[in-house]
Design a protein around this nucleic acid. Structure first.
Lengths: 218, 218, 218, 218
DNA sequence: CATGAATGAGGATTCATTCAT
DNA sequence: CATGAATGAATCCTCATTCAT
């Protein structure tokens, strides 16, 4: 509580060549692993320090306290994911392609970086409860990506004009998130790629303007 | 062994009006409130005892330990929800009606019993993590309801024959769950009923066989 | 602490024919078994109540508190043993015979009533520590028996006149007690009877006037 | 794993004069005092911490838990005693001298270090009960010393050839132990030295070959 | 900057004891 | 008399956080 001036975030004066390996980052990276493995309430500062190869006290040179470490961890994790998505979508022109890309990217992320995914799916979800008052701002960003795609689709006339983006955004995110979670908690044997495709099918059919999906009467 | 005062459950001359309000139930009810409000790891036995109006030690007359209390709480919560769903579906004959009923019931439950919903959406999600080895069996039941509806729909020829029920079940549950969660964490001002309808629209369109969804040529 | 009038010890108004089976005695007997098995600090009132087939609260109708129960238990146990010894010695006329009888009786008691023996050897030993201020008066009685035998032996001219009865009493008791304890803690397979005889040999030789012990030159 | 600050035991720049006074040792020493005074089940971690002048939590940096602290304490205490005995016996050549030395050393230990003696006599005795499964290995060592002396005496032809060392060992230990205990629980006013001598007399006479003790018939 | 020993508040759990029925 | 549910003080132990080196 007495706190000490938080020396994080600013002025990183890298003394040697350290690439992306500030001690702060090493700690964060270690924390991700530990958090994913043991869950929030079983993760101790000592665990994290050990995983990062530093002393317990060192953590407090970079983070005000455990909560703050968690918050920065969440933001780091989300930022990492966001970058991935922005990249993946840049190449797509149309809403449908973008939505496909988004879903695939999400599930690919889960498969390739399960620790990060676990944190997003499980820990982040209850962050607002275990860290009093915390609202992850980047999570909003994340949702906004989906929302924008939907909006584009509507404007393109490809998606139903009556869908409420904010609602459907949540639905889509929820669907993906749950599938990710199921996979994370399972033995992780089946491929998420296939699931991604099947999921795309259904979601796209769900949001498309009807005639498009059924040019039957032609 | 169970260490639980042996007489509960069966009529024990209720001095005042206590209806079905065993102490065990009172504790469980209190625990639901506290858990929903503060989250698992911030919930202490003392909190629960206070909320239930009993001494700390009394908790241990009815529950082996904190984990066990949580487990029974989850099962109670899920059982309560399951009963609700079974009832709601009984009246429906066709898959589409059942799916609608299911979605509406779920969101109505959220709206009417937010504490229970919060627990299902947030706490239960990481139950398998914080309670080592625990797998909630009733959650499987819950998913099975959706799965069966999908199966029926496929057999009826109403739903796409190529959808993988286990996957879509997860997707549907995830969508609903996320929408519930968003509402729970928001100021809860907008009606979930409307959302339910919009969600139904999209999900049904997503799972229907295409021609069916577009009887356009009429 | 607030206590209630201790109804023990006096007025046993046996309502029916109950022989030696007052509830008080049943509790005590049960307590002996539990105490011997689990040791003092692992023995709970609940254990004792269960073993006695009564409710926890009932214990407090007969004993002021746990300490008092223990004290009465010790006294009961010692009294039982004392009776046994007095009987065994009655028939012997001479010191040597008495000492033999005493040793044999002690070890026979251990063999036949290991629970009682365990309590005397193990629990009683630290009674003065776990029950503040308690000094078992019957234990003094017990030692006095040995002391008297020694005194008699000295007066008879059979035992060395220079031995200090109070010291040797302790030594003899200690020797027996330790042998008992070793047996109690072992798998109890070898016979204590044999040991008794060997022990007698040594102790008697140790306390006898020398010439007596070596009538060799005769 | 041991959770014990890793550096102890090896020179750690003693700021003040601390000689061989690691914190671990200070705790152990404090624990000996408290344990001797209050007995096992009345000794709390808090008591020990206070006596050692450290915080409660500090105990756990050096000992896994209370049981483990006790076990290490017992071993420390026994090891200390054993060293003393080995030293005392080194100078003696013959069995009789060794036995005398042993008895005197034991009682001198009691007199000079009553706390340690109290623990050996009282607490250790029931260690196998209050700490599940624990068998003090050094206690066996201790008994072995007596056993070896007896064996030597037999081989020298000084002690009776028919005495069973394992039994007599116990008897001798028990005699001493009981005398120690009586002294510890008494006001400790009389000298144990004298008792030692008297005890030696009797024990030696008890174990000697008869003719030796009574060269009368020569 | 880094360390890690020390701290002590906080939490789960046990159990002797009470008291309403 | 007997019961056993309820109590809550007491205790072990954990772990975030501090601070002397």
């Amino acid at each position: 509580m007495s706190g000490r001036p938080s020396k994080r975030e600013d002025a990183k004066r890298p003394s040697t060549e350290e690439k992306y390996s500030t001690k702060q980052e090493r700690i964060l990276r270690a924390a991700i692993g530990v958090l994913a493995e043991r869950g929030f309430h079983r993760t101790t500062i000592h665990d994290i320090a050990q995983a990062a190869g530093v002393a317990d006290g060192t953590i407090y040179l970079y983070f005000k306290n455990k909560d703050q470490l968690l918050i920065e961890l969440f933001e780091e994790v989300m930022a990492r994911a966001l970058r991935l998505f922005r990249d993946a979508l840049r190449e797509e022109q149309e809403a449908e392609g973008k939505l496909r890309a988004f879903l695939h990217t999400h599930l690919r992320l889960v498969e390739h970086d399960p620790e990060v995914a676990q944190i997003i799916s499980v820990e982040l979800r209850q962050s607002s409860i275990f860290i009093k008052e915390y609202k992850n701002p980047l999570f909003g960003e994340y949702l906004k990506i989906i929302g924008e795609i939907l909006q584009e689709g509507i404007e393109e006339g490809v998606f139903r004009s009556d869908l409420r983006p904010s609602l459907i955004t949540r639905a889509i995110f929820g669907a993906m998130d749950e599938i990710s979670l199921a996979w994370l908690l399972s033995r992780r044997d089946l491929s998420l790629e296939e699931s991604a495709e099947a999921l795309c099918e259904m979601i796209l059919q769900g949001v498309r303007r009807c005639p498009v999906s059924a040019p039957s009467g032609a």
